[in-house]
């Protein structure tokens, strides 16, 4: 299972890539493996202001549906327009299958997230 070293992870199987005060958020390979084929990503408010842990959207997969949680607080600045070909989330979860970008309000919240090694342990790898 691919768990890139340079990302931060949540217990809800999301990842964050930090560049300045922008956090790019996606689903881990473990998450998409459990979800199966993703068929729609619903993010109702593309400019939402979120506290850490807030629900900001839903992933519809063939087998099941899952909520998306803000791994850090902030404001959504960009939503990946993937709904024409949502399988990109399955094919490239850490790359072109990213979901949203968040302008973070408190980078200190990143300290509460998991490192790659901690996430591997969390998923029993």
């Amino acid at each position: 299972m691919n768990v890139p070293e340079d990302l931060k992870y949540t217990k809800d199987h999301e990842w964050v890539r930090v560049e300045g005060n922008i956090g790019t958020v996606g689903l881990t390979e473990h998450a998409v493996g459990e979800l199966g084929d993703v068929v729609y990503v619903d993010i109702p408010d593309a400019t939402a202001s979120l506290a850490q842990g807030d629900t900001f959207g839903t992933v519809e997969a063939v087998k099941t549906v899952a909520d998306l949680y803000a791994p850090v607080g902030g404001t959504l600045t960009e939503v990946n327009p993937i709904n024409g070909a949502p399988d990109i989330v399955n094919r490239d979860p850490y790359g072109d299958g990213w979901l949203v970008k968040i302008e973070m309000t408190d980078a200190g919240e990143l300290d509460g997230l998991m490192s790659a090694a901690e996430y591997k342990a969390h998923t029993g790898q």
């Binding site: 199966g36 084929d37 063939v62 087998k63 399955n90």
Partner: peptide, 10 residues
């Protein structure tokens, strides 16, 4: 078996 690696849609 619920699904194989290619996935349910395939």
């Amino acid at each position: 078996p619920i699904q194989y690696p290619t996935g349910i849609l395939e």
